[in-house]
Design a protein around this nucleic acid. Structure first.
Lengths: 351, 351
DNA sequence: GTGAAAGCGCTAACAA
DNA sequence: TTGTTAGCGCTTTCAC
């Protein structure tokens, strides 16, 4: 009908359910229903519809459907950083769960920039994503752009940070506990002057790790010495800086908790080059359970930060929520993390 | 108008351009034009429109726009694997270029599975992505699902593989040349029995690296000894297997080209544990320029595989194409890769 | 079990 | 510079 007055010459025309309907002499609604396996359509017509669709090379237009149904089957993922093993693990986890559930993932990369993150959030709203999984920048306290989602009833699940969002769900590990464990382990190896190399304490994850570090020390009757706490970030440069700082410290430190494996590896490398023995001179504990931790020598003791699992859990709980399985409000899921003891910290014959 | 007969009680109603139009006493098309900074709209009304939009908390519905305009500003990315440093670098590159150009990226992860990849391709068609960037599985020769894009005039750019797609664009490195360089380097270090550890030769990248390896040997008057070529994949297990195999070889090999840094690192580790000296007993060259290559000891000689750059170039050329900047057909962009010489292969005092 | 008709929110040709 | 009007392709009551 709609197409009757259009000249048939255009090959750029999309094939629509109307074409299938015309072809079969049924109505467009029958085709629509047939395509989505609606129970009220007879098996035979459904089969005919499927056959015609295939024959005509029909590809359903999800845009049109989403516009009408207000459901996009799209999950938006906002990450402050992308190019590291933890994040790609999380994405892998999210991707596989989402895909199995018929959701697509659109990812926005904020490059450590709150303004850009806000833009990304707006954009997700315009795309009408069904839900959001986010690891926010958190370089200041401006999380207001996440409130937009709340206003529009778009569920958000945070991971890797963002404790400051009240009534929001999140999937995290016990960062304070992990920091405590790592530090306690070093103390048990006989360390007394333990350096902490970590990121900016504005980020909740780092604040928590610091807290655990401080508590463990206190529980062993040691007070925190701020000159041993280095918070200049976690990357190659920071690892080198940390090594330099450590070599200048007096009295010498005897342990280091470096909350990123790559940074720890770089630091360790620099120290061994300078003649230090690891773990004899300095016992080291990293964080993340990167591939790297396994191939450096000595192998790095580290805290396992299960990225794939975190991604899977976040995606699963978001999708469950979207399907209305639970309507409970904010949830805080704590994923198990654990200390993996290896040579870089084992100073005693035994553990 | 459209809304006049609707009871006003529903708070779930979206705010649309009609609301803004009513609010301002102008037509919806004026609002639409104002919102997209159409030149024919006066500065003053445009400002009013923007103000009203902000005041009402309006969020443009991109679905509706895309449905009408047939442009989604979405790039689909298909990757056969996700959880490795090269891929996350590529994604980072794609993401930053796409985002700057106003495109969103939706990623589909095929988990080394051709059937799933085909499904992902179909899905992208249904979502009406404007263009595609893909690193296909290629475990067999079935690439037919990519022809769908061709049929619908959706441009595709491949990276990391897929030479078998005629008249398609791609961004690659010179894998054969890199393989040649790596092997030649080992030969120049005095190696004569050089092991090759690599992936399945069905994948074009591995086939090419093999080709370079073989050519370099031949150019030095050495014929390829298939017992030195291990193609059981590239991962931790393969690294260990490779080390075991190497230790069993007789006569002993004196060099190894392992086309993945992590695999190379694992293999090297296992060999040093068994008492081998690197590079004295075995000179090793890896591939990828992973972080890992820098923190193992000895540091790993490797081939730089510039992921971020590849992603950026792929995204840029796809977007340029979408904007109609060039209408040339298939292009093959070869990105510079190079040998990074480090301790794991330097047997002679000089280079 | 199937059809008619309205409309999701936006864009863009054509008028004015 | 702005308004009118007709869809984009699909879903979904409501009717039969």
């Amino acid at each position: 009908m709609k197409k009757a007055d259009t000249p048939v010459m255009s090959t750029r025309q999309e094939i629509t359910i109307y074409d299938i309907a015309d072809h079969l002499g049924v109505s467009s609604s029958t085709v629509s229903r047939g395509l989505q396996n609606h129970p009220t359509i007879s098996e035979s017509t459904r089969r005919e519809i499927a056959a015609a669709a295939a024959a005509l090379g029909y590809q359903r237009n999800l845009l049109a459907g989403s516009l009408r149904s207000r459901i996009t089957r799209t999950i938006g993922v906002i990450v402050h950083d992308l190019n590291n093993q933890f994040m790609s693990s999380v994405l892998t986890g999210i991707g596989s769960v989402a895909s199995d559930a018929g959701y697509d993932v659109i990812i926005a990369y904020s490059a450590q920039n709150t303004a850009k993150e806000a833009l990304n959030a707006q954009n997700f709203l315009k795309r009408r994503v069904d839900g959001v999984i986010a690891s926010p920048v958190c370089d200041n306290n401006d999380m207001s752009h996440f409130r937009l989602f709340h206003d529009k009833k778009v569920p958000v699940i945070f991971f890797d940070g963002a404790a400051e969002c009240p009534d929001s769900s999140m999937v995290v590990i016990d960062n304070a506990g992990s920091g405590y464990q790592a530090t306690q382990h070093l103390l048990r190896q006989g360390c007394r002057r333990i350096v902490l190399v970590t990121g900016n304490k504005n980020r909740e994850v780092y604040a928590q790790r610091y807290k655990g570090y401080a508590e463990a020390l206190r529980d062993h009757g040691i007070s925190v010495d701020d000159s041993l706490v280095l918070t200049n970030g976690l990357n190659e440069a920071a690892g080198i800086e940390a090594a330099d700082a450590i070599m200048r410290m007096y009295p010498r430190p005897d342990g280091a908790f470096i909350t990123d494996d790559y940074t720890a590896a770089v630091c360790m490398h620099k120290l061994t080059d300078a003649g230090w023995s690891i773990p004899e001179d300095l016992a080291i504990v990293g964080f993340n359970y990167d591939f790297i931790s396994k191939v450096v020598s000595p192998q790095l003791t580290t805290i396992q930060y299960p990225g794939i699992e975190i991604g899977e859990i976040a995606a699963r709980s978001l999708i469950d929520h979207l399907k209305g399985y639970y309507s409970n409000g904010a949830a805080r899921i704590v994923v198990r993390s654990q200390l993996v003891k290896r040579a870089s910290s084992q100073r005693l014959g035994q553990m």
